[in-house]
Simulated scan of single mutants.
Amino acid sequence: MEIGVPKETKDQEYRVGLSPNSVRSLSDRGHTVFVERGAGEGSGFADADYLQAGAQIVLDSKDAWDRALVVKVKEPLPDEYPYLRKGQMLFTYLHLAANRALTQALLDSGTTAIAYETVELPDKRLPLLAPMSIIAGRLAIQFGARFLERQQGGRGVLLSGVPGVKPGQVVILGGGVVGTEAARIAVGMGAQVQILDVNVDRLAYLETLFGSRVELLYSSASQIEAVVPAADLLIGAVLVLAQKAPILVSRQVVQQMRPGSVIVDVAVDQGGCIETVRPTSHSHPTYIEAGVVHFGVPNMPGAVPWTSTQALNNVTLPYVLQLAKDGFGALDRNAALAHGLNVHQHQLKHPAVQDVFPDLAPKLVS
């Protein structure tokens, strides 16, 4: 099969869909990989590395897109919509629930779109989302600590504190992978940490990880209203599969936070769980609203592409190999991959995305 790897076009997105090691695995099995010139440079991979792995280097995006299977990292942007076409398979993160325009473009084009974030194992784990969630959770604290610095608009709080001065207060909404990894870094820095979650079993598991080092609270509207105003750093770490994140923190609660506090909403790629958060970019990562610094970059792992590209490829490669071998038949042979199917033959396929856009869902014939 011919496989295309375009260069990512999202602002400061330096990850790449396939690493040279992944290309080597595909080439060794007789597939031909077409990599856009410079696609891997941001991740530390030169064109020469891809050539050595057996790839062909193409000079523009169209040549990379014009293949049976296109492997990316982030969703197509409007400038890339013309490359979408019938008979093509697209394998990438999509997050359609927060992007009606892209959903419509995929439906119009006839592209078969398989989303990393909805590939789901029988035990409900999301194997292609997990490594980026780990990285995003760890980065959330790293970015939050930076923007708490006074020169960045923050309160001037050192999360670790020092002898004689109390540490910073970190509140994390959601105890899944993102929230757990954020807590791991925050605890390591010496911050005071609270995690809120509605899953009591998950809270019990987190107690086995953190013991008394983290305060574990059942998430409710009144609990959120009680703890958020005192947070130096608020982390949004809520995930609802293929749907928009629920708004857990209202504008009124944000207005009660202290000036210079920081919000990092990792759920922003699914719409965000904090009312005042809107998407930003690595070039312009923050804005101030109600005196609070807001960080809403939806592609946070793009800040550490050498690590994140390899972590992503470690989990996507088996699925890419199966798609390259079996084509559309891979969706019949691999139930986890079938869960990843969002759009096929001009139809919206994933039930959760259908719930978000009921007017775009296939109409039942009585």
Rank of each mutant, 00 (worst) to 15 (best):
G4K: 00
G4E: 06
V5M: 09
P6H: 11
K7T: 05
E8C: 10
D11H: 04
P20D: 03
S25R: 15
V33S: 04
V33E: 03
E36I: 13
G38E: 10
G40P: 15
A46F: 00
A48Q: 13
A48H: 00
Y50E: 03
A55D: 12
A55K: 07
V58A: 05
K62M: 11
R67W: 05
A68T: 14
K72Q: 15
V73T: 06
P78E: 10
P78N: 09
Y81Q: 12
P82Q: 12
Q88V: 05
Q88N: 05
L90R: 04
T92W: 08
T92P: 07
L94C: 14
L94A: 11
A97V: 10
A98I: 09
S109A: 13
I114L: 12
V119H: 14
P122M: 14
L128Q: 08
P131W: 12
M132W: 03
M132Q: 12
S133M: 07
I135D: 02
R138Y: 00
R138L: 01
A140Y: 02
I141Q: 05
L148A: 13
R150L: 14
G156E: 07
V157E: 06
V157A: 06
L159A: 10
L159C: 01
G164C: 14
K166P: 07
I172Q: 07
V177Q: 02
V177G: 01
G179K: 09
G179T: 12
T180Y: 07
E181T: 01
A186W: 07
V187P: 12
G190S: 10
V200C: 13
A204T: 13
Y205H: 11
T208Y: 05
E215Q: 11
E215G: 03
L216S: 10
L216C: 11
S222E: 14
V227P: 09
V227Q: 15
V228M: 11
A230R: 09
L234Q: 03
V238L: 08
L239P: 10
A242H: 05
A245W: 01
A245F: 05
L248P: 09
S250N: 04
S250E: 13
V254P: 11
Q255P: 08
R258A: 15
P259D: 07
G260C: 09
V262L: 12
V262T: 06
I263R: 03
D265A: 07
A267F: 01
D269Y: 02
I274T: 01
S281E: 03
S283R: 07
P285N: 01
Y287T: 08
Y287P: 06
I288N: 01
I288M: 04
V292H: 08
H294W: 06
H294Q: 14
F295M: 06
P301K: 01
W306S: 14
W306P: 00
S308D: 02
Q310C: 01
A311P: 07
N314V: 00
V315Q: 15
L321W: 11
Q322F: 02
L323D: 15
L323E: 04
A324V: 14
A324D: 09
K325Y: 07
D326E: 14
G327T: 13
L331R: 04
G340I: 04
G340A: 08
L341C: 14
V343W: 08
H344E: 12
K349A: 13
K349C: 14
P351W: 09
Q354A: 04
F357H: 09
F357R: 04
K363A: 15
